[in-house]
Write a protein that binds this DNA or RNA. Structure first.
Lengths: 220, 220
DNA sequence: AGATAGATTTTAGCTAGACTAATTTTTGAT
DNA sequence: ATCAAAAATTAGTCTAGCTAAAATCTATCT
């Protein structure tokens, strides 16, 4: 059986793997807000099911079947987010929590119907790529806004979808995927940075800038 | 906590109560496809939570809070069914299974958005009334098609939503809520009956006729 | 190499929700 | 009124999750 819990774990493992390369038990537990013991227990079961490989004390990796399932759940999540914004008119700060629940109950048929109604979108409202049904997801070069250098102009590609307050904050300032900004100043030592968008300067704290992925001119 | 299981039990209790008046433990177990012992166990918990009252050996009844929750779940179910048909173009035989899953994950906000998009519908695609948010549901006189007498003309009010094959069967013959039919013949002894719709005679087995609720001329 | 901090795993025990088998209560038929 | 059948309950078990606390391993620093 493929329970909600299994799906949540695989999704979380995929996301941690993307972000940090290695997936430590503790990182997974932190991510899922559960104890490390629970994580270890489930990791064992996932390994028995052949969905992850696990070297004790060395962390965990998705197998190909596990990756397939993770990407399917992520596809559901991002399609639902897109649907809620495009077809139902919700604001982008509210759709993550809904999608967390819907992703587990979406049939393949309805998934396809949504996809079709939306015109086979490639990205969700936060700029995250939507995996194909076959489990393909584009590899595109991205850097964090906080890694940009002063003076360069970059285009916002993606923002974190799970912090509603931050999404409202960004929305109020017109910082959406597709918007170009020029980095006018960066404070050293984890300090804030300033970007210019259409003649207005906007100061952003470092943690916010960490949540924004951008692309350089000419990049896909 | 209000789990999926609790919601499913309350909904089932409500539906059995509607159909049969008394809710026997065995009827509930049958309805939910679980053992009678499991039903007894959960009934105890529901009673502790104050959602049902339980006289051992006498069956179970929803309390007012329990009824409120049951009607909320049913409202979700029927709104989702309506949404899937009206807004997403699914056929009426496919929506029950989806709604069984969605009813448990629908937020109040999204419920209201759906309701609004659909123009505050009062009935779902199968003709079942949609409870209001306050837990109100209309009391309307209905009889089973199998209880009609030969010669009378009745209007189809509602059909069972949980048998996909039967819904396709009825759909193919144009038997939807709102359609008027004349009962031309009824076989005794649980036999089939014949209805006439727009100059065509349609023969229906007794079990099918049991699943169709009709209203007499002049009734709401 | 040894010490030790931090990560990981193990152990023990809890809860929800299901099950079977055995028992008790109610009902219905003679 | 009795007694068998049906219905409901109790008792005990199972699995999937979880937590907290204890034990163990790894890696790093001197």
């Amino acid at each position: 059986m493929q329970t909600k819990a299994v799906e949540d774990y695989l999704k979380a493992i995929y996301e941690v793997q993307e972000r940090e390369g290695r997936v430590a038990t503790s990182a997974l537990a932190e991510r899922l807000q559960i104890s490390a013991a629970s994580a270890t227990g489930m990791i064992k079961k996932l390994a028995e099911m052949g969905l992850v490989s696990h070297e004790p004390y060395q962390g965990v990796r998705l197998t190909e079947p596990g990756r397939k399932i993770a990407l399917e759940v992520i596809r559901h999540h991002r399609l639902v987010e897109t649907y809620l914004v495009e077809a139902m008119g919700l604001t982008w700060d509210k759709v993550h929590d809904e999608a967390e629940k819907w992703e587990h109950v979406l049939s393949e048929e309805l998934e396809d119907r949504m996809d079709e109604m939306l015109g086979r979108p490639t990205h969700d409202p936060h700029g995250a790529p939507i995996p194909t049904r076959e489990g393909h997801i584009p590899e595109t070069p991205r850097l964090k806004l906080s890694e940009a250098v002063a003076g360069e102009t970059v285009t916002i590609a993606q923002v974190a979808d799970d912090d509603a307050a931050m999404l409202r904050y960004l929305g109020e300032r017109g910082l959406y995927p597709g918007v170009a900004v020029t980095v006018t100043h960066i404070e050293p030592f984890e300090g804030p940075l300033t970007v210019r968008r259409e003649d207005r300067d906007i100061s952003l704290g470092r943690p916010v800038a960490e949540c924004i992925k951008v692309r350089r001119p000419g990049e896909a």
